[in-house]
Nucleic acid binder design. Sequence first.
RNA 1: GGGCUCAUAGCUCAGUUGGUUAGAGCACGCGCUUGAUAAGCGCGGGGUCGAUGGUUCAAGUCCAUCUGGGCCCA
Length: 941
Amino acid sequence: MTDAKDWKATLRLPTTSFPMKANLREREPEILDRWDRMGIHDRVLEAARNGGGTPFRFHDGPPYANGHIHHGHILNKVLKDIVVKFRNLTGRPTEFRPGWDCHGLPIEHAVEKEVGRDQARSDPSAFRRKCRDFAARWVEVQRQEFRRLGAFAAWEDPYLTMTPDYEARTLREFGHFVAAGVVYQGRKPVLWCPVCETALADAEVEYRDAPSPSIYVRFPFLPSVGEKVPELAGRPGGVVIWTTTPWTLPANLAIALDPEALYIAEEVASGETWVLAEALRESFHRETGVPEGTVVATFPGRALEGAACRHPFEERDSLLVVGEHVTMDTGTGCVHTAPGFGEDDFVVGARYGLPAFAPVDPRGRFTTEVPRLAGRGVFESDPDVIALLRERGALVASGTITHAYPHCWRSKNPVIFRATPQWFLRVDQPMQPPLAPQEAPATLRDLALEALADVQFVPTWGRDRITGMLRSRPDWCISRQRHWGVPIVATRCRACGQVQTDQALVDHVARVFDREGADAWFDRPLEDLLPPGYQCAACGSRDLEKERDILDVWFDSGVSYAAVMEARLATADDPHPRTDLYLEGSDQHRGWFQSSLLASVGTRGQAPYRTVLTHGFVVDGQGRKLSKSEGNYIDPNRIMDQNGAELLRLWTAAEDYRDDIRLSDEILNRLVEAYRKVRNTWRFMLGVVSDLDPVRPVGPLLDVDRYALVRLREVTGAVRKAYEDYEFHAVVRLLLDYCITDLSAFYLDITKDRLYCDAEDSPRRRSAQAAIRTILRTTLSLFAPILSFTAEEAYGHLPRAPGDPGSIFLVPFPRAEDLPEDATLRERMQTFLEFRPEVLRSLEDARARKEIGLALDAAVAIQVPAESRLAACLESLGTTLPELLGVSRVEVTTGPDRSAPKVQVQPILEPRCPRCWVRALDVHRHPQGLCGRCAAVMEPA
RNA sequence: GGGCUCAUAGCUCAGUUGGUUAGAGCACGCGCUUGAUAAGCGCGGGGUCGAUGGUUCAAGUCCAUCUGGGCCCA
């Protein structure tokens, strides 16, 4: 007698060198090395090019070269990588040239910390060199971190906004706007530190509680008020404002009201009539202690638009205007507006043509434009202003409040808003895009809005978002008072003060930049940089000096389509090629998407992109933003260490990026499980096909095996479509469900008998193997853009035929059309698969009654209604039913029409075949108690 | 405060133009198997579809308001 162990040795159990344990931490770097050695990025691209497909133009948005990468970067770059891999695999050559944003404030700050502020100011050239080194260092760090994610990109050939060619290009693009006549120097309030005597960025102020005066001031009515609101005609009184910065009152030019909100005119005890917002009436009387009077009129804010009050102490009027920024939470709803001293004030003022009047010098002292305060510091002038108001009878009430006030992070002193000269791009002046001469003149804003009609947005609401922002945006302030950036090339005349720039100057300097980069502007004397004969346009003087501002870094990155894409792709036929896809976080609707759009539309009259795809932000398991201080921060390095980049790739793909993307340990654990399932399924299939000769042809497939491929065809089509539609989470879902439901729980389970027990060479076994090999190769390819490391690893364990490429990424992407279609078979199998759970439930019942253990211990008697679809189905499946149900014997009978199918499970008493465990009637007839099939298999060859 | 946006089982997602007892996978519970074994199979429990109100014969699906997130502004 042969014992059980020996029979096991005669089975064809799966064998493979592909390990169950992923050990991605060690494996991934090996795979990365291999990709590097084979130059995978170029090879993939080359393969796509050889296929002759239409190139897909993708443009990588540049992250800021500062600090290590975090979840947001990972999400973004992996999404891009998935797109690029998919496009290349499906025959559309797609380059991924990564970029970095290198200029700008954060780097200046970091360097300033190292070298000190004085050096930064005294030697801009040396300071810029340090900034350059700093940026280069972080580019290198991030490059390694990105590369580790398994993204196929031209990591050795990135674009940097600080290289000479890029800087020259940036300047030239600026020149196009100069040529179009929409560049102007104006004034705009910026945060200003009177102690440092410098402009500050938002990031350079910190808010601290500080006491401020709190005063209510009445601006006397002028006759125009009575014309707008008749009830006020002839009444003494005024509009009451509230402010915490009395010193800004000398620059008051307007009072802003909410156009929709209701305002009241209230006659108070003194006999005067005061105007304030109805919603704030109660708090006004409470705060000021003024007793409530009688309401003589109620009207919406817009009723007073265009009327004016008298300034309480200057020889000037104060215009009544409306603005959306007026709020009803504090004050009177009538907002003191000094366009030179406040951002909102400036924007509203600009709408009414009011100047940014800011009679304060860089040290925060009043200029002679305010004679009574000239030379006095602004904060120390508060009491004087209050006294003056009291003297003029304009002070309704005064007190002190403590509130958060911006302070300079360096000097720790309170800061002010102060209008200073700045450069702008005008968005509301009709212009001609210089490189699109056929276009009719239109404003930059309208050009941008029109161009959006020709852009796809994923998700679609991106269009609404950017449209809203464009509609309401002010002129683009493109200047910064900094050192680390591309200079605004312009001159100032020492003789007459004229500031000027023109395209000739800009182009001349750009040619210098081509060779030397923007450093030339800082390193060289101006004479080296001017075109021959250049002189002041106003007075003809040649005594000029350099303008010292640099360009907003959003302008730098905004021209990347020109510096990176057009520079490489432009042809005579298509001088301004558009990019197929931009893919960034949804914050870029205000940032890069918009700056790129404006930069392109103002020069070439078209959007730079055809499709804009945005993703949400990474948040925690509860949907809150991640922050280290909140303690909900998960370190991406920890994930990488524990589960490799592959898990982060899977996470990126599995979540619906259109909304915010959640990240938590629970989510990661679920994904680890999913990963294991896929990996194990691949491993099993690798084991099953290990002895299938990759070259020798296989005969016609059995129906079940064919059906498996019919299903694979459906999945392949759906997966491809999901990739096309950028629905990567659907890809993951489809493939996971297919792996679990179709493969693991059904097809791979029911083919085991054939695979293990049939003769090695039997057609039935080879049929299953052939189907499984197709499934394996197909799913590896389908998943490869996402599970790049594992698909590549598994592919390496596949028996290779001569001519098979050396990487899964060089295998053409599967096409549904290449897989069999068979509607009859599909329908039949679907009917069966709907019925199968009935049988499984009955088996489970029998198991619960302890009648059976293995399903192979059971015989199943099925009674189906005659003439039913199910009857026909089971009839046609015939002798394969036991295999399909995993039982030893199946008997099908027909009952009355329309009766419900009945399933009966009987334990089989005959002994099991010791080799295949099937309980068969013929076991006794064969030597060693084998069943007929096994006996035949075991017969000496 | 404004613009855009999201809210379906513990988790990730489906739910077509409003129409039968709201689905899947995972997780969980129970069982089988030990010939995918740090695996595999089966069965099962689990949701007042963020809340309220409305339109409708009928609403997760349409409308309004609210609550709570997110991005961008203020």
